[in-house]
Amino acid sequence: MKPATAANLALVLVVIGGVLGSYGALSQLGDPAPWVTAAQLDAMRRRSLLFMLVGMLAPLCSLWLAGYSFHAARIRALAASILCLVQPVALFLWMLW
């Protein structure tokens, strides 16, 4: 893979990972409706966990790709690395608010 392509993929993975991780974390907040069955709750929790895990793995892969492509595309690699740090902090601050 060319380093420039890896840098672009790193940026895409950061954004996708942030969205999926945020959805997975925020979908587990709150109480379920009383008419929701236990099987539906289990399915929703498993789906949320899957989204959270993919949302956590995507930025890790993005960091690896950013490190791989740092010499060829420094600005994009740095942008991907900074976004990997900014997204969890922003989610944490939003949840505190």
Rank of each mutant, 00 (worst) to 15 (best):
W94K: 11
S81C: 13
S62H: 00
A90N: 03
V86L: 10
D42G: 11
A80Y: 07
L65F: 12
K2T: 15
Y23H: 08
P88G: 00
A33T: 11
G30K: 12
T37Y: 09
C61G: 12
I16Q: 02
A80V: 08
L93S: 09
A79L: 09
V14Y: 05
Y23R: 09
T37C: 06
Y23N: 06
C84G: 10
F92S: 15
V15C: 04
W64T: 09
S48G: 06
A25I: 09
M44V: 08
A4T: 15
P34H: 03
M56E: 15
V19N: 10
K2M: 14
L85D: 10
Q87P: 03
Q87I: 10
P34L: 06
L50K: 05
W64F: 10
S62E: 03
V89R: 00
S27W: 12
F92R: 15
M44T: 04
L57Q: 05
S48A: 09
Q28W: 09
A66C: 08
A80L: 08
L11W: 08
L65W: 10
M52F: 10
P88M: 02
R76H: 07
M52Q: 09
V14S: 06
M44P: 03
R47Y: 03
I82R: 01
L85C: 14
W97Q: 12
A73H: 00
R45S: 14
A66I: 06
Q28V: 13
V89K: 02
P59L: 08
A72I: 05
A72S: 09
C84K: 04
T5N: 12
M56T: 15
A72C: 05
L96N: 13
A10T: 06
P34W: 04
V14W: 01
Y23I: 13
A73Q: 02
V12Q: 03
G24F: 03
